[in-house]
Amino acid sequence: MNSERPEERDAPEPAEPAAPDGRADGSPIGRRVLLGTLGLGALGVVAAPTLQRGLEAFLGGVSGKDPTGLTGLLPNGGGFRYYSVTASVPRKDDTNYRLTVDGMVDRPASYTLADLRALPQTRLVHDVQCVTGWRVPKTPFEGVRLSTLLDAAGVDPSAGAVRFTCFDGAYTESLTLDQARRSDVLVALKMQDKPVGHNHGGPVRLYVAPMYFYKSAKWLSGITVTRAVRPGYWEERGYDVDAWVGRSNGRDDAPTG
C-alpha cells in the first residue's frame, strides 16, 4: 500500500488491530451488545404484566416503611403523581370558590365551600389507579354524592350526560347520567382525611371510584347536564370515555370500584 506501513509495523507496542479502511479485526461484540439490549427490551415488553405485578407488590410493601419517600419516585413505587395540563392553576379557597350546576336542569345552582360542607358527606376508601400505571392503595375520599347535587337541581328527563369543567381553564371530563348517579361518584372535599390540597385538585375535585383517575377531574368548578357525552380533555387525545379500571384503555388492572 504505502511506504510508511513497514515502519509502523516496527513500533514496539502491539499495533492497533485496525486496518486503514476501518474494518477492524476482532469480534463484533458491539453489535451483539446492541442487539442484546434490543432483545432484552422486547422481552421486557412481553414479560411486563408479570414483572409489573411483582414489582408493585414488592415496592408497595417497601414504600410503606421507607422514610425517605424515594421509593415513591420509582415506577410502580406507589404514591400520587402531579399532572396538570396548564402552566399554572389559580388557587381558590373559602372566599372565592364556586361550584355551578347548570345545563339541562330545572334549578341551576351555585355552591360555596360552606354550602357543600353542609350537605350529607360520604366517605369511600378504594385504591386509586392511574391509566399510566401507578396505583395508590386504599385512599379515603370524602364529599357530597354527585347524585345529591343532580337531584337538587332537577335533571331534565331528556338529558343523558354530565360535563365537568375545571378552574384550571382547560381540563374537562364527562360521564353518562347513569355513571354520574352511582353512589361511588363524589364531589370530593377531602382526600386522605384532609381537605383536598391545591396540588391534588383542591379545594374540590371529582372522584369517580371505579374509573381511571383521569376521570376524577381536579379543580372542579362546573357541572353541566347535557344531552349526550362530550369527550373530555384526555379523551380527545386518545383515552377511553368509559374508563372502567381493568376494562378500558387496554389495561387489566384489578378493579377499584
Binding site: V45, A48, L51, N76, R251
Partner: peptide, 20 residues
C-alpha cells in the same frame, strides 16, 4: 401511536419505558 397496536401493549411499553 396507541391506535397502531393493541392497547394492552401500551401498558407493557410504559413499564419498559419507565424502568429503562
Amino acid at each position: 401511536f396507541t391506535r397502531l397496536t393493541p392497547l394492552m401493549w401500551r401498558s407493557s411499553a410504559t413499564f419498559v419505558h419507565d424502568w429503562l
